[in-house]
Design a protein around this nucleic acid. Structure first.
Ligand SMILES: [Mn+2]
Ligand SMILES: [Mn+2]
Ligand SMILES: [Zn+2]
Ligand SMILES: [Zn+2]
Lengths: 159, 159
DNA sequence: ACGCTCATCTGCAACTCATGCGAACAACCA
DNA sequence: TGGTTGTTCGCATGAGTTGCAGATGAGCGT
């Protein structure tokens, strides 16, 4: 995803308005490596702008995704995850706490044993399911519903 | 997934009952390569046993999945897909019609550029997003909601 | 600065997919 | 055949997401 100031230019050039809600979400998403869900981002945004609506968060996430500024990940955790890192990379997901982290693989996909019967591949997604170090260390810190905890406001984006 | 007769033995040995609903679903799933959703399987089952409930289909799919007889795929198409093929393999998914097909890859995953920071991998899933041959051929045959059509009762399992 | 206009925001209803629940049912065994 | 108990079914509920329409306000021309 491009920087908030670059997005400012892009949005203006498309006749779109620069609302405080959008500006906040731009800042919260830029450089965010937590792969937040819409709800997680909503909680985070609410701390900075009480009253912002979940609907607006969804709206903005969808806008950014359809503009190609965000990648939408469907990892089967119940809710979609959004990723401002739109470069080629893959993910690990902890089956216990839901944390998603980036993984960069060497080389390309292996060759196919069978031909794909005319199927044309647009993109390949590799998802490594497993358990993160923190969850393996202690059960006490890893509750079943701490999926929201993995959204940590990274200092770089702080006001 | 094991054969219906094998599952009969397994279920009985676990104190579970062999209802007609379960027997039908065993037959409809065995060798089924369409990766049906619960709803798609429900529609198929309803043709053979009018009155069977969607709830029972979900129940049986979950039972089989937790017994390790089925693989549950979260491909982000809106609903979970169930796969009686529990061997190591991967999938293509057509972004237009939702068709899911098996893909077998040569060799193992590429080595990781970065270490996984203590993350222990249980399984790796590769999903190739793209467009199937049929959808590329003609728009006319590929409506947006023909996701249900991809469940074809394969002759081998016919009564 | 002011007012106009139209994109946006917000709250709520609706929708899809999946599960919880309890009464009716029926497979299995004695 | 009758009783026990797992199963089925219908409906309510829940999570996640989108549709909708009135209120709001950003951007622009004056
Ligand atoms: Mn990522
Ligand atoms: Mn498969
Ligand atoms: Zn974890
Ligand atoms: Zn297709």
């Amino acid at each position: 995803m491009r920087s908030p100031s670059e997005l400012t230019t892009v949005f203006r050039s498309q006749g779109m308005k620069l609302t405080p809600q959008r500006q906040l979400l731009f800042r919260l998403l830029h450089g965010n490596i937590t792969h937040p869900s819409a709800d997680a981002l909503y909680l985070l945004a609410s701390a900075h702008m009480p009253g912002i609506s979940l609907r607006t968060v969804y709206q903005t996430l969808n806008d950014l995704a359809s503009m190609g500024e965000l990648q939408q990940l469907a990892l089967g955790t119940g809710s979609a995850r959004f990723d401002p890192n739109i470069g080629a990379h893959h993910h690990t997901i902890c089956q216990r706490c839901g944390e998603v982290r980036d993984v960069y693989l060497t080389g390309d996909m292996p060759a196919y044993v069978q031909d794909l019967a005319g199927f044309v591949v647009d993109s390949a997604a590799v998802v490594l399911h497993g358990t993160c170090a923190q969850c393996r260390a202690g059960e006490s810190t890893a509750k079943s519903d701490n999926r929201r905890n993995n959204v940590v406001y990274n200092k770089e984006n702080s006001t």
